[in-house]
């Protein structure tokens, strides 16, 4: 489900079924050499998380991305966010990112790190294919977590 009024009311009505939250984490880099890469990575994570939401919309709530200025430590922010989500009654929290600095936190949090693929140069069919391939990689991460709790 997306984080907008219509879907969120569905989430509240089906809380026992929707027990997983995905938080995209995106760093914003303004230095001239890497700004393009940064925007491309942001676009990729946005597209991919939307695609995952579409596949698993009955079990996942996708939050709007957490963005931060690159280089600033996010441990505290992630911890606070996770705490709030768990306190609200959700069982699983996944942070999805293509940033290395967030990937380093994966002992503390469930971080799914995927290298950014530049989608802007692709046509729609290619894009779809890439997203499907990436989704296939990510599915086991979710299903394992879901299977372990039962």
């Amino acid at each position: 489900m997306q984080f907008h009024a219509k879907d969120v009311s569905d989430v509240l009505a089906n809380k026992t079924f929707i027990d997983t939250v995905i938080v995209p984490v995106i760093s914003i880099d303004f230095s001239e050499t890497t700004m393009i890469q940064s925007s491309s990575a942001a676009d990729y994570i946005t597209n991919l998380t939307n695609f995952i939401e579409h596949q698993f919309r009955g079990r996942i709530l996708l939050l709007p991305p957490m963005t931060y200025a690159s280089g600033i430590d996010q441990t505290a922010q992630l911890a606070q966010m996770q705490e709030k989500i768990i306190a609200a009654g959700f069982k699983h929290v996944f942070f999805m990112t293509s940033e290395h600095e967030i990937h380093k936190l994966n002992e503390q949090f469930a971080v799914i790190w995927l290298p950014a693929i530049p989608l802007e140069s692709m046509d729609n069919n290619m894009k779809q294919k890439i997203l499907e391939d990436q989704l296939a990689k990510v599915i086991p991460l979710f299903t394992d977590k879901w299977a372990n709790q039962n």
Binding site: D10, N14, F17, I18, H54, Q55, F56, R57, G58, R59
Partner: peptide
């Protein structure tokens, strides 16, 4: 589209 909550 699953008739439960709309997954694929």
């Amino acid at each position: 589209v699953c008739k439960h909550l709309g997954c694929t």
